[in-house]
Nucleic acid binder design. Structure first.
Length: 923
RNA sequence: AGGCGCGUAGCUCAGUUGGUUAGAGCGCUACCUUGACAUGGUAGAGGUCACCAGUUCGAAUCUGGUCGUGCCUACCA
């Protein structure tokens, strides 16, 4: 074995081997267990959020597989309509053309080409994470079968009247020329202005002043509104204003919606370009005047002077024009929330269009109920509130997108605009008995990608035609995803799945935190703080990292700053930590919080942990000298150390299983880390040395210890395998044969189960005594600055027979681990030479001072110890001195405190007398 | 404006139903290349658990409030 763990030498090999041998497919007859992957964008790249969630899913999957379930991790990708189309459009722009020049069919072919070209990347990256996905069942949202489900669902909902076509305001992305849903709009506060315009009152010399943040929309104004109780304007209600620049008269109306405190208390109403105004327009029967084109420039409805101008150019011209008319009252700086498309980043316009909607209410009710009655549980539970809040105020879902990449809406129109919905043009003709002479054309739009994602759990399992897998694995057991898509995806999946299959899609929803950078900032391309999971696995040079973070930027002016920050955060680039270390980092961070600050320091720590395990295995196997041990063992031969480590392993198994039950991967990983490093490596390995090195004199004990050494390691590897698949497999392959365990892979071995017979309180007490004595001696050595190379003498003194026995049984260990020349028992009345003193419970640990230490150092040390004890004692005595505590606290607690007080008092007395002795010596 | 989180060691975080002298990792200090491992070992320093009240024999933990901070939802043109 190599002296250090080299992850890159083994990961690829083992993954390929598992995949080729079909280990990722369900096997056996156990209870089915299934997770459906949240489908990543087929042309996307793996990011930290994926890495994190896949680490978690894989741990769950590997755990259940080892526990004997028929386990399926259903894999697939989605077509990511807008994102993918944008990428290809950008390529066309670079080639100096565009999709319209190309035509729809050729464009869609191009997207398929792009999918074929780049579509393998993310699935390869998933493999690098060690994810044991069943690749033989890989699906894509645009596969024929899945597309058929999409179509069926659309048609069924339409025929039931739950999908309808509506003409209303939507969020319009003028760059992408498509509607997007509320959820795809992000509003951030930005600096803007509030322009105050004077609108002249018709047939009067008066004017009123409106305030607006979007002056260009005045071209579509249909009214001016004031609050009904606003006395300043009461006399104007019912009159008209002359809308400047437009030569139109519009009414002055009153409506509760108006806030008299804001601006001037007069608000211009533009029903075609503002959601609130639209509602008010409906209340007051106002004209809806659309003044924008698809691309958000001014259209034919507007006065000629502004036609064809981009909206922002038009804004500037209108302000100029108003000013030249003397109607510009003032301009105030103003902070406002600007809605932008989450993909394109451009300002979204409320825009009046025909779109397809899902009438959501009747679907929402059962979904709410499923969570209320506990059929579906969120983990952590408080996310249910977020879910409820949104579901109880849910809006109809706009599902049409004016894109070319996606599932085309199965609707046809005749020349009169009648709509026919069906699976194909001929099906529609047949159903509605339309003659071939009537020309039909299909709806140009495609469906929101989330529409197909909402069907994911059942469409990937073969529903509705091939029900074998569906019947076995649906509902899936758990969905692992981020809170950012509870509305986008989780809620919609619940609604659609209940509607069509009558089943919930999953029993649990485990909501993970969001991975942020080491300062708590969201990772984003524009901030330049992205970490690529693959770079953490393989490592990356600083220059390459800087280049990666600064290339292809939307805002090139940030380049230098990002480069500096990157150089400051990663002066040496990123080392190659390997997949197991990265995965373990994710587990350790997976607590209940919703922000996960990713700290590379932790990954480094876990890389070291991997190396620790590697070397422990190296030690264990070196000592076995290639002999294979019989699997039968004789517990009668076990030392207390042997029984102790088995007992601790038993506890660890219990902790890990309990933590996993609660999805507390952080606790599970911590138990494993502590056990393996702080118990097995730090103590058991050291305790095994004197036994193994004394093989010739005591072969039975050596054989027993060796078998425990190997067995505990083997069980630990199995316990650890769901978290660190590669390292554990590599070691297990070498280790298992040594103790007669046969099997092709650790991933098909049974997961350790609880076995209370391994729990051994006596052994734990004895080893805890041993540790305490060793720690006391080491403490003296450390504080007294005694070279670790120097063997020293030590004495133990006390009156307890049990302590005496412990010394007798553990003398060898003490001598080895504390590097002692000798250790002898003194009876309480025996007077040792001048010593440095430590205490473990009631045992005095004495190290003769002669020639080793200066007395003042020991005095200082004792005083420090005494100080600590005094502080502790004061607080305990305070408690016990309190009548109320003694009378009201449970007896067990009081007894415990009393015992503690006694011990501390004794210790204090003993140390004080030591201090006195020293003072006498030095005097 | 509402809702939900969070505030524990220099940093990143645990702390299960209130009962410890408040823990871990990284970092820090000192010493050590001893035959698994310097990606290591041994010892050590470091915290008024944001603040203020309250409940209780007892509060990091429960309640109320304050401050700070983050996110989500709805928004004032």
């Amino acid at each position: 074995m190599e002296k250090t763990f080299q992850p890159q030498q083994i990961e690829e090999y083992w993954y390929r081997s598992w995949e080729e041998r079909g280990y990722f497919s369900p096997r056996g007859e156990g209870t089915p267990y299934c997770i459906a992957i949240p489908p990543p964008n087929v042309t996307g790249r793996l990011h930290m959020g994926h890495g994190f969630q896949h680490a978690i899913m894989d741990a769950l999957i590997r755990l259940h597989r080892m526990q004997g379930h028929q386990t399926l991790w259903q894999v697939g990708t989605d077509h990511a309509g807008i994102a993918t189309q944008m990428v290809v459009e950008r390529q066309l722009t670079a080639a100096d053309t565009n999709r319209h020049e190309l035509g729809r069919e050729a464009f869609v072919d191009k997207v398929w080409d792009w999918k074929d070209e780049s579509g393998g990347i993310i699935t390869q990256q998933l493999r690098r994470m060690g994810s044991s996905l069943d690749w033989s069942r890989e699906r894509f949202t645009m596969d024929e079968q899945l597309s058929n489900v999409v179509e069926k669902v659309f048609i069924d909902l339409y025929e039931e009247g739950l999908i309808y076509r509506g003409n209303r305001l939507v969020n319009w992305d003028p760059q992408l020329h498509t509607a997007i849903s509320d959820l795809e709009v992000v509003s951030e506060e930005e600096d803007g202005y509030l322009w105050h315009f004077n609108y002249p009152i018709a047939d009067s010399d008066e004017h009123l002043t409106i305030a607006t943040t979007r002056p260009e929309t005045m071209l579509g104004d249909a009214a001016v509104a004031v609050h009904p109780e606003d006395e300043r304007y009461a006399h104007l209600v019912g009159k008209f204003v002359e809308l400047p620049l437009c030569n139109r008269r519009i009414p002055i109306i009153s409506d509760d919606y108006v806030d008299p405190e804001f601006g001037t208390g007069c608000v211009k109403i533009t029903p075609a370009h503002d959601f609130n105004d639209y509602e008010m327009g409906k209340r007051h029967n106002l004209e809806v005047i659309n003044i924008l084109t698809d691309g958000a420039s001014i259209n034919e409805e507007a006065p000629e002077a502004f036609r064809g101008l981009d909206r922002f150019e038009a804004r500037a011209r209108i302000i100029e024009a108003i000013e030249s008319l003397g109607l510009l009252e003032k301009i105030e700086p103003h902070k406002l929330k600007v809605p932008r498309g989450d993909r394109s980043g451009v300002v979204i316009e409320p825009y009046l269009t025909h779109q397809w909607y899902v009438a959501i209410q009747s679907l929402a009710d059962p979904a709410i109920k499923a969570v209320e009655n506990g059929d579906i549980e969120f983990v952590p539970k408080n996310w249910e509130n977020t879910f409820f809040a949104w579901m109880r105020d849910i809006q109809d879902w706009c599902i049409s997108r004016q894109l070319w990449w996606g599932h085309r809406i199965p609707a046809w129109y005749d020349y009169k605009g009648n709509v026919y919905v069906g699976s194909s043009e001929s099906a529609v003709r047949q159903k509605h008995q339309l003659s071939d002479k009537i020309e039909l054309h299909q709806d140009e739009d495609v469906l929101d990608t989330w529409f197909s994602s909402a069907l994911w759990t059942f469409s990937t399992l073969g529903w509705p035609d091939d029900l074998e897998y569906f019947n076995k694995f649906h509902p899936t057991n758990v969905l692992v995803t981020g809170f950012d898509i509870i509305f986008f995806w989780v809620a919609r999946m619940i609604m659609m799945t209940l509607k069509f299959t009558g089943e919930i899609p999953f029993k649990k929803v485990y909501i993970t935190g969001l991975v942020r950078d080491e300062h708590g900032q969201k990772m984003s391309k524009s901030k330049g703080n992205i970490l690529d999971p693959i770079d953490l696995i393989d490592g990356i040079e600083l220059d390459a990292l800087v280049k990666k973070r600064t290339s292809d930027m939307m805002q090139p002016q940030l380049k230098q700053k990002i480069a500096e920050l990157t150089r400051a955060s990663y002066p040496a680039g990123i080392a190659a930590y390997g997949t197991d270390a990265l995965r373990f980092t994710f587990y350790s961070l997976a607590s209940t919080g919703r922000d996960i600050k990713f700290d590379v320091g932790r990954t480094e720590g876990f890389r070291n942990f991997c190396n620790k395990i590697w070397n422990a295995a190296r030690y264990a196997m070196m000592n076995s000298e290639g002999d294979s041990l019989s699997p039968e063992w004789n517990p009668a031969e076990f030392s207390s150390a042997d029984r102790w480590i088995l007992s601790r392993l038993e506890q660890t198994i219990g902790e890990v299983l309990a933590a996993l039950e609660d999805y507390r991967f952080d606790l599970a990983s911590q138990s494993l880390y502590e056990f393996i490093w702080n118990e097995y490596c730090d103590w058991y390995l050291e305790l095994s040395k004197p036994i193994l090195w004394d093989k010739d004199n005591n072969p039975q004990a050596a054989r027993a210890t060796l078998s425990v050494l190997l067995t505990v390691l083997e069980r630990s590897l199995r316990l650890l395998h769901p978290f660190m698949p590669f390292l554990t497999e590599e070691i297990w392959q070498k280790l298992a044969p040594l103790i007669g365990i046969k099997g092709d892979s650790i991933m098909l071995q049974p997961y350790p189960e609880r076995d209370p017979t391994n729990f051994d309180e006596v052994a734990q007490a004895e080893i805890s005594w041993l540790k305490g004595i060793i720690l006391a001696i080491r403490n003296i050595r450390g504080e007294m600055d005694i070279s670790p190379a120097k063997s020293i003498r030590a004495f133990l003194r006390g009156s307890n027979e049990q302590d005496k026995t412990c010394l007798r049984l553990n003398r060898v260990y003490l001598q080895k681990l504390a590097k002692l020349e000798s250790i002898e028992w003194l009876n309480p009345d025996q007077v040792p030479p001048t010593c440095a003193t430590g205490l473990h419970n009631n045992v005095e640990v004495l190290v003769p001072l002669a020639g080793l230490i200066d007395i003042s150092a020991e005095t200082a040390r004792l005083e420090k110890e005494i100080g600590k004890l005094e502080t502790g004692l004061k607080s305990i005595s305070g408690k016990l001195g309190n009548e109320n505590f003694v009378s009201k606290a449970p007896d067990a607690v009081v007894t415990k405190e009393r015992a503690k007080q006694g011990e501390m008092q004794a210790a204090l007395t003993s140390l004080r007398s030591k201090l006195d002795e020293l003072n006498n010596v030095s005097a």
